[in-house]
Amino acid sequence: MQITDHGVLLRSLPNPLTPTGMARIRDARPAGPAPAPPAGPQRVDRRISSRGALVIAGQKIHVGIRHVGATLAVEAADTTFRIYDGDQLVTEVARSTTKPIARHKVRKPEPPCRTIPAQRLPA
């Protein structure tokens, strides 16, 4: 199963249907031409951790404490990762992994933990 956006391949996933399940789909038709891989460097967003780092394709990159909680754009080329804050280049790091980028969207931040206030005991 391939997910595309205007003919550009975003990601491939295993087909969740069995052969009998595929035969039961109504109005099924053959797929069109295979989607083209994205042209040029791939650009994804990442949220900076509380320690000032992000992980992309299994590689941890430190961008600094001042970017904590920010969502930065990462441009993945063949040999480097370029991290942008808006249009400004923050850093360029050599790529040390050959893994493909598995996640293309930023995870939503977790809601803050609600703690129950301690109850006061009668004196």
Score class of each variant (00 low, 15 high):
53 A>P: 03
25 I>Q: 02
120 R>Q: 12
80 T>S: 06
41 P>C: 07
42 Q>I: 15
78 D>N: 09
29 R>I: 05
105 K>I: 14
83 I>E: 00
119 Q>P: 10
58 G>S: 07
115 T>P: 06
6 H>M: 15
66 R>H: 09
40 G>Q: 07
8 V>P: 04
90 V>R: 02
11 R>Q: 13
79 T>H: 08
112 P>T: 02
106 V>Y: 10
45 D>Q: 10
99 K>R: 12
57 A>P: 09
122 P>S: 11
96 S>D: 03
50 S>V: 12
21 G>Q: 10
14 P>C: 15
26 R>N: 03
40 G>C: 09
46 R>L: 01
120 R>V: 12
81 F>P: 02
35 P>A: 06
58 G>N: 03
120 R>L: 12
86 G>W: 00
92 E>R: 12
54 L>Y: 05
74 V>I: 07
111 P>V: 04
70 A>N: 04
85 D>S: 06
91 T>E: 02
98 T>M: 15
11 R>A: 15
53 A>W: 05
74 V>F: 03
65 I>P: 06
88 Q>I: 00
64 G>W: 04
111 P>R: 09
68 V>N: 05
93 V>R: 08
104 H>C: 11
31 A>T: 05
55 V>Y: 11
52 G>M: 01
116 I>R: 14
117 P>N: 04
36 A>W: 03
53 A>T: 14
105 K>N: 11
103 R>D: 07
104 H>D: 09
23 A>H: 06
47 R>M: 01
33 P>M: 06
39 A>N: 03
115 T>Y: 14
6 H>C: 15
90 V>K: 00
35 P>C: 08
94 A>F: 07
106 V>M: 11
81 F>I: 03
97 T>K: 05
12 S>F: 15
10 L>Q: 11
13 L>W: 15
71 T>P: 02
75 E>H: 10
94 A>N: 05
25 I>N: 00
24 R>A: 06
100 P>M: 13
113 C>I: 13
5 D>T: 14
116 I>L: 14
104 H>S: 13
11 R>H: 15
67 H>F: 13
19 P>K: 10
114 R>Q: 11
115 T>I: 14
93 V>W: 05
17 L>H: 15
21 G>H: 05
23 A>T: 05
70 A>T: 04
85 D>F: 04
28 A>Y: 05
96 S>P: 00
123 A>D: 05
5 D>A: 15
22 M>L: 12
